[in-house]
């Protein structure tokens, strides 16, 4: 059995969380509140030291860089940081009801810029690149010797037809025609088959997580395994 205080704490918290499998109880509540409190505090501190301090404070007052690293080289002052800093401060105006409407500006700015930025990336990686990957091999795949690889060719046919069927399922205003309805149903069927395979794979990964926790309890804590 372990003599480490940290291992005992980790084991006790693990058992408290596992107790939720029986029902909600004071032990789970304790672990839940501890987890939420510690994680919220951790992320707040991390946000301050990894985002606010280097990106705002240090850029306005370069000498502040030596608070965390005494030997650090002083960066150039960047007064433009005042703009995002001001937007951040506008968020806090939500605390004053009369000026709360100003807090919408930074929210709108954040949503607008990130969606605009992601739009280009998404069109490239999730749209054009996917079509290219489906179309480029063609429908007949050959071995390096030049003969037709029938298994790979069959797989490629399923990929092209399956992608088209799944896309047809996600149309909303064209399902009246019978043939299209059949294609859409085939797409839904393919999706469900894919979900089933993905679910089975993910269940196995979750079981491996459970095994690692049991190894910790039986090995690191109790010394039985």
């Amino acid at each position: 059995m372990s003599t480490s205080f940290e291992v005992w704490i980790a084991a006790a918290l693990t058992l408290m969380v596992f107790s939720f499998l029986w029902r909600d109880n004071p032990f789970y509540k304790f672990a839940e509140h501890l987890f939420v409190g510690v994680s919220a505090g951790y992320w707040m501190v991390l946000g301050f030291w990894s985002t606010l301090w280097p990106n705002a404070v240090v850029k306005l007052v370069p000498e502040a860089a030596r608070v965390t690293e005494p030997a650090a080289a002083l960066p150039d002052r960047d007064p433009l940081v005042i703009i995002p800093l001001a937007l951040g401060l506008l968020m806090l105006l939500r605390l004053w009801p009369r000026a709360a409407w100003l807090a919408r500006w930074p929210t709108a700015f954040a949503v607008g810029t990130t969606l605009g930025y992601n739009l280009v990336r998404t069109v490239r990686s999730d749209f054009l690149a996917q079509i290219h990957a489906t179309v480029a091999p063609g429908l007949v795949i050959r071995t390096p010797a030049g003969a037709i690889d029938w298994i790979a060719t069959g797989n490629q046919g399923v990929i092209v037809a399956g992608t088209a069927c799944c896309l047809a399922y996600f149309t909303y205003t064209r399902t009246a025609r019978r043939a299209r309805g059949g294609v859409a149903r085939a797409g839904l069927l393919l999706l469900m088959v894919a979900f089933g395979a993905s679910f089975a794979y993910a269940v196995m990964s979750r079981v491996s997580l459970l095994i690692s926790r049991l190894q910790f309890l039986l090995g690191d804590w109790l010394g039985l395994a």
Binding site: F127, I131, T134, V135, A136, P137, G138, L139, V140, V160, T163, A164, L167, A168, F170, T171, Y172, T173, R174
Partner: peptide
């Protein structure tokens, strides 16, 4: 806009099928 999206998906299906066929015929 849903109808417009459906049109984009129809074109995409067309590009997929015709593109795959064209690549195959061009290769063969």
């Amino acid at each position: 806009s849903l109808r417009g999206q459906d049109l984009v998906k129809d074109v995409t299906i067309g590009v997929l099928l015709i593109g795959a066929l064209m690549v195959t015929v061009a290769d063969v």
